[in-house]
Amino acid sequence: MTRPETVPAPDRDQTRRLALSTSAGAVQQCRDFSRQALLDWHWLAVDGDGWPDDEQVAVFEDVLLMVSELVTNACLHTPGGPRELRLRWDTVRLLVEVSDGSPVPPQLRPFADPGLPGGHGLRVVDRLARAWGSRPEDGGKSVWLEVSSPLNHRA
Protein backbone atom coordinates (compact mmCIF):
# COMPACT_ATOMS: atom_id res chain seq x y z
CA MET A 1 0.00 0.00 0.00
CA THR A 2 1.37 3.40 -0.97
CA ARG A 3 1.15 6.15 1.63
CA PRO A 4 0.52 9.78 0.60
CA GLU A 5 3.49 12.09 0.88
CA THR A 6 3.76 15.31 2.83
CA VAL A 7 3.32 18.23 0.44
CA PRO A 8 4.60 21.71 1.27
CA ALA A 9 2.19 24.60 1.57
CA PRO A 10 1.84 26.97 -1.37
CA ASP A 11 3.95 30.11 -1.37
CA ARG A 12 1.06 32.44 -2.26
CA ASP A 13 -2.55 33.14 -1.37
CA GLN A 14 -5.14 30.78 -2.72
CA THR A 15 -8.83 31.63 -2.99
CA ARG A 16 -11.83 29.47 -3.81
CA ARG A 17 -15.34 30.81 -4.45
CA LEU A 18 -18.67 29.01 -4.61
CA ALA A 19 -21.68 30.94 -5.91
CA LEU A 20 -24.98 29.88 -4.35
CA SER A 21 -28.43 30.48 -5.80
CA THR A 22 -30.66 28.72 -3.29
CA SER A 23 -30.69 27.57 0.31
CA ALA A 24 -31.73 24.07 -0.71
CA GLY A 25 -28.74 21.82 -0.18
CA ALA A 26 -26.43 24.79 0.46
CA VAL A 27 -25.00 23.52 3.74
CA GLN A 28 -23.87 20.17 2.33
CA GLN A 29 -22.66 21.78 -0.89
CA CYS A 30 -20.53 24.26 1.10
CA ARG A 31 -19.15 21.53 3.37
CA ASP A 32 -18.18 19.41 0.36
CA PHE A 33 -16.62 22.43 -1.38
CA SER A 34 -14.66 23.37 1.77
CA ARG A 35 -13.54 19.79 2.38
CA GLN A 36 -12.15 19.56 -1.14
CA ALA A 37 -10.36 22.92 -0.88
CA LEU A 38 -8.71 21.91 2.40
CA LEU A 39 -7.66 18.57 0.92
CA ASP A 40 -6.28 20.34 -2.17
CA TRP A 41 -4.34 22.66 0.15
CA HIS A 42 -2.98 19.64 2.03
CA TRP A 43 -4.47 20.61 5.39
CA LEU A 44 -4.11 16.98 6.35
CA ALA A 45 -0.39 16.78 5.68
CA VAL A 46 0.92 13.42 6.78
CA ASP A 47 3.70 12.55 9.20
CA GLY A 48 6.49 10.01 8.64
CA ASP A 49 4.06 7.14 9.19
CA GLY A 50 1.69 8.46 6.53
CA TRP A 51 -1.05 9.80 8.81
CA PRO A 52 -2.18 13.33 9.70
CA ASP A 53 -1.80 14.23 13.35
CA ASP A 54 -4.72 14.69 15.73
CA GLU A 55 -4.46 18.50 15.76
CA GLN A 56 -4.71 18.72 11.98
CA VAL A 57 -7.73 16.42 11.93
CA ALA A 58 -9.43 18.43 14.71
CA VAL A 59 -8.91 21.78 12.96
CA PHE A 60 -10.03 20.30 9.62
CA GLU A 61 -13.27 19.09 11.21
CA ASP A 62 -13.75 22.37 13.12
CA VAL A 63 -13.55 24.32 9.84
CA LEU A 64 -16.24 22.16 8.28
CA LEU A 65 -18.45 22.63 11.34
CA MET A 66 -18.01 26.41 11.29
CA VAL A 67 -18.74 26.58 7.55
CA SER A 68 -21.94 24.66 8.26
CA GLU A 69 -22.91 27.10 11.00
CA LEU A 70 -22.35 30.24 8.91
CA VAL A 71 -24.21 28.82 5.91
CA THR A 72 -27.06 27.54 8.11
CA ASN A 73 -27.46 31.00 9.65
CA ALA A 74 -27.64 32.55 6.18
CA CYS A 75 -30.24 29.96 5.15
CA LEU A 76 -32.38 30.51 8.23
CA HIS A 77 -32.11 34.24 8.81
CA THR A 78 -31.66 36.00 5.47
CA PRO A 79 -33.97 36.43 2.49
CA GLY A 80 -32.70 34.33 -0.38
CA GLY A 81 -30.15 32.52 1.77
CA PRO A 82 -26.40 32.62 1.20
CA ARG A 83 -25.02 34.17 -1.99
CA GLU A 84 -21.43 33.00 -1.95
CA LEU A 85 -18.87 31.06 0.06
CA ARG A 86 -15.26 32.24 -0.17
CA LEU A 87 -12.22 30.50 1.24
CA ARG A 88 -8.84 32.21 1.25
CA TRP A 89 -5.70 30.57 2.55
CA ASP A 90 -2.38 32.39 2.79
CA THR A 91 -0.42 29.51 4.45
CA VAL A 92 -0.79 31.14 7.88
CA ARG A 93 -4.53 31.48 8.21
CA LEU A 94 -7.76 30.49 6.52
CA LEU A 95 -10.41 33.14 5.97
CA VAL A 96 -13.95 31.81 5.47
CA GLU A 97 -16.63 34.24 4.25
CA VAL A 98 -20.33 33.69 3.64
CA SER A 99 -22.18 36.54 1.94
CA ASP A 100 -25.94 37.05 1.97
CA GLY A 101 -28.55 39.68 1.09
CA SER A 102 -29.36 40.93 4.59
CA PRO A 103 -27.59 44.02 5.93
CA VAL A 104 -28.36 42.95 9.52
CA PRO A 105 -25.17 41.80 11.26
CA PRO A 106 -25.29 38.55 13.21
CA GLN A 107 -25.39 38.82 16.98
CA LEU A 108 -24.10 36.39 19.50
CA ARG A 109 -27.16 35.37 21.52
CA PRO A 110 -27.07 35.01 25.27
CA PHE A 111 -26.29 31.47 26.33
CA ALA A 112 -29.14 29.26 25.13
CA ASP A 113 -30.44 26.22 26.96
CA PRO A 114 -28.08 23.44 25.83
CA GLY A 115 -31.03 21.03 25.81
CA LEU A 116 -32.95 23.05 23.21
CA PRO A 117 -32.15 23.21 19.51
CA GLY A 118 -31.07 26.47 17.89
CA GLY A 119 -29.15 29.49 19.05
CA HIS A 120 -25.78 27.76 19.36
CA GLY A 121 -24.18 28.29 15.93
CA LEU A 122 -22.39 31.58 16.50
CA ARG A 123 -21.40 30.45 19.99
CA VAL A 124 -19.62 27.50 18.35
CA VAL A 125 -17.92 29.85 15.87
CA ASP A 126 -16.98 32.20 18.71
CA ARG A 127 -15.29 29.36 20.58
CA LEU A 128 -13.49 27.72 17.64
CA ALA A 129 -12.44 30.58 15.36
CA ARG A 130 -9.39 32.75 15.98
CA ALA A 131 -11.62 35.74 15.11
CA TRP A 132 -14.98 36.36 13.43
CA GLY A 133 -17.27 39.21 12.46
CA SER A 134 -19.25 40.74 9.64
CA ARG A 135 -19.01 43.66 7.24
CA PRO A 136 -21.41 45.29 4.77
CA GLU A 137 -21.21 43.97 1.21
CA ASP A 138 -23.33 44.71 -1.89
CA GLY A 139 -26.55 45.61 -0.04
CA GLY A 140 -26.10 42.68 2.32
CA LYS A 141 -23.20 41.49 4.40
CA SER A 142 -20.34 39.05 4.59
CA VAL A 143 -19.91 37.03 7.77
CA TRP A 144 -16.31 35.91 8.15
CA LEU A 145 -14.12 33.84 10.40
CA GLU A 146 -10.40 33.15 10.66
CA VAL A 147 -8.66 29.92 11.56
CA SER A 148 -4.92 29.46 12.03
CA SER A 149 -3.31 26.86 9.81
CA PRO A 150 -2.77 23.58 11.67
CA LEU A 151 0.18 22.62 9.50
CA ASN A 152 2.90 24.28 11.55
CA HIS A 153 1.38 23.98 15.02
CA ARG A 154 4.37 22.03 16.35
CA ALA A 155 6.85 24.69 15.28
Rank of each mutant, 00 (worst) to 15 (best):
D53N: 14
R130S: 06
R127F: 00
R93D: 13
E5P: 01
R35I: 01
E69K: 08
A155C: 09
A74C: 10
P110A: 11
L128D: 04
R127C: 01
P106V: 06
E5Y: 06
R86Y: 07
R135T: 11
V104N: 13
A131F: 08
W132I: 05
T72M: 12
A24R: 15
A45Y: 08
V27K: 08
A58C: 09
S102C: 12
H153A: 13
P105F: 10
D138M: 03
A131V: 11
D62W: 06
A58V: 10
H42R: 09
R88I: 05
S34Q: 03
R12Q: 13
L95D: 06
P114K: 07
R135C: 02
S34P: 07
G48C: 05
R3H: 13
C75T: 07
E97G: 11
C75F: 12
E84T: 04
P117N: 01
W51N: 13
G121N: 14
D126K: 03
R83H: 12
F111G: 09
D100K: 00
A112W: 01
P150M: 01
V124Y: 13
N152M: 06
L85S: 06
P82N: 01
E5W: 09
R130H: 08
A37H: 12
G48L: 07
F60A: 02
S34V: 01
K141S: 09
N73L: 07
R123M: 05
V67T: 04
P4N: 02
S148F: 07
T72E: 15
D100M: 03
D49V: 04
G118D: 11
R130T: 14
Q107A: 14
H42E: 08
P10G: 05
W89A: 13
D100Q: 05
M1D: 10
T72I: 03
S149K: 04
A58H: 06
L95E: 11
A45I: 07
S134V: 04
D54L: 12
P79A: 04
N73Y: 04
W89K: 00
Q36A: 10
P150V: 01
L70H: 05
R83L: 09
P8A: 08
R154L: 15
M1H: 09
L64R: 05
L128K: 09
L122M: 11
S21L: 13
V71L: 04
E55M: 14
V147M: 09
S34Y: 03
D90W: 00
R109S: 15
D13E: 14
W43C: 02
L116D: 15
F33I: 00
F33T: 00
Q107I: 12
T15P: 11
S23M: 12
A155Q: 13
R135F: 06
R127V: 00
R88C: 15
T2D: 08
A9P: 10
P82V: 00
R135H: 12
S34W: 03
P150N: 01
G118I: 03
S21Q: 13
G80K: 02
G48D: 11
R130W: 12
V7A: 14
W144Q: 04
G133W: 10
L116K: 14
